[in-house]
């Protein structure tokens, strides 16, 4: 068909629909995942090589960035753990385990692991 009209590329497609925008926000959390790793490596470096982790982490721009990173990684955790049941099909007795059970398990594990980490970091030996 030579007469068919082919629309040009829509450069703002991710603004056309709320779900697209949430999708892009979800994907962009990965930038803050990368930042969180960089930040933790700087803290580890300071701890192991005789520096002061508080000096770097205490700068206002680092705190501000980390507040955003906290929101982003939490958003990542919620969305990623919620989407897990679509990829994993667990069958019990021939029928599928409902999604909310897998999601509930994931979020429970998240809370438990967070509590264990906080305990080991904060306990006074």
């Amino acid at each position: 068909m030579t007469t068919a009209y082919r629309p040009p590329r829509d450069h703002a497609w991710f603004l056309r629909n709320r779900n697209y925008t949430v999708f892009v926000a979800r994907e962009l959390t990965s930038v803050f995942v990368a930042w969180a790793i960089v930040f933790l490596m700087i803290v580890i470096d300071a701890v192991l090589n005789g520096g002061d982790p508080a000096a770097f982490a205490g700068q206002p721009w680092v705190i501000a960035l980390n507040v955003v990173a906290l929101a982003a990684t939490t958003f990542h955790a919620v969305t990623f753990l919620n989407l897990a049941p679509t990829a994993t099909v667990i069958r019990l007795d021939g029928y599928r385990l409902p999604a909310w059970m897998i999601q509930g398990g994931n979020h429970s594990a998240w809370l438990l692991i967070s509590a264990v980490i906080a305990y080991f970091v904060l306990r006074t030996p």
Partner: peptide
């Protein structure tokens, strides 16, 4: 994705926000 979801929020919360 799984590792980041399970570990990063608490680490950022402790070392990046609450302690500073």
């Amino acid at each position: 994705g799984v590792v980041a979801a399970l570990l990063l929020p608490v680490l950022v919360l402790l070392f990046g926000v609450l302690m500073p």
